[in-house]
């Protein structure tokens, strides 16, 4: 009983903002599932939570910094885990990056996961004039990072794109370093600032909002990353709720600069609170 009281008090600002809500954006990894060997595992209650949202009158999109596989591949993985989800509802950084490359006439050197490479089929990569890094995991060897560094340092104006800027994420066997760590390494090596494509970039959230046809104040973001998901959404004018799954750490609730509009145990609890508050 006491723990329920604490939860209700902690989230008091969150259900109240839900009445004018028209849409929800969900992070994937750490909210719907924990990644790991094979497909990873669905977080208990999250399959049903997604179904409940889809049955409501709320618009639903998925916004992820997932860059280890093509959209088709990881949507397939989510479907195998039991989620009702389609490719057109999912917004990862790679397609946004390709749009930028085309628009600015850039040829990238790619330091990404092997699984992501097919997204870049047809993109010109000879004589590169920028570097794109994603969550390359095992491909983050010294040699590969050094190669990216050498491309950058030879450019008159080194241009680095980072697909997200996360610090770490949780896999079934523990916390793993994310792309942001290697972005910082290359920034430090070349004395430059990377352009981030993905959460928490405002441009990235805006592209999802415009696909939904909604204003920021009408949308709630639910994620496990306090700074990237919650803070990023809030700086765009959305509400942001953090789940205590995935990479959540208790110290997040005392973060010096980002305070979530609500903190809940998991996605299932967040969705039940939203829907019961709206009288579904």
């Amino acid at each position: 009983m006491r723990s329920l009281m604490v939860v209700l008090m902690a989230v008091s600002s969150f259900p109240a903002c839900v009445s004018e809500l028209k849409g929800v954006i969900l992070d994937l990894c750490g909210v719907l599932y924990d990644s790991g060997e094979g497909d990873g595992v669905a977080i208990p209650g999250s399959v049903e939570a997604v179904n409940k949202l889809k049955a409501s009158n709320l618009k639903l999109r998925f916004c992820t910094n997932e860059t280890q596989a093509t959209r088709e591949k990881f949507v397939g993985k989510l479907q195998r885990l039991g989620f009702n989800i389609n490719v057109s509802e999912v917004f990862p950084p790679a397609p946004a990056a390709i749009a930028i490359l085309t628009h600015r006439g850039l040829r990238p050197h790619l330091l990404v996961h092997d699984g992501l490479l097919p997204e870049f089929d047809g993109v010109e990569t000879t004589d590169p004039n920028c570097v794109i890094i994603g969550d390359a995991a095992e491909n983050f060897s010294y040699q590969n990072l050094n190669q990216a560094f050498k491309v950058l340092i030879e450019l008159e104006k080194p241009l680095l794109f980072s697909l997200g800027q996360g610090r770490y994420y949780k896999e079934t066997d523990g916390l793993k370093l994310d792309v942001g760590v290697y972005m910082k390494a290359l920034e430090y090596a070349c004395d430059i600032k990377a352009e981030v494509i993905g959460k928490p970039s405002q441009m990235f959230f805006q592209s999802v909002l415009s696909d939904m046809g909604l204003q920021p104040h009408e949308v709630l973001m639910i994620g496990d990353d306090l700074v990237s998901d919650v803070g990023g959404a809030q700086s765009c004018g959305m509400k942001g709720v953090q789940v205590r799954t995935g990479k959540y750490r208790p110290s997040d609730e005392r973060h010096p600069s980002v305070t979530a509009d609500g903190t809940v145990d998991d996605l299932a609890q967040a969705v039940d609170m939203i829907l019961s508050h709206r009288g579904h």
Binding site: Y142, L145, N146, F149, K150, I153, R167, Y168, L177, D178, G180, V181, Y182, K184, A185, L186, E187, Y188, A189
Partner: peptide, 18 residues
């Protein structure tokens, strides 16, 4: 040619761990 020193890896771990 030029090669990465330890600094970038230290900076990365500083970012990861705060």
């Amino acid at each position: 040619g030029l090669a990465l020193g330890p600094g970038p890896f230290v900076a990365g771990l500083e970012y990861a761990t705060d």
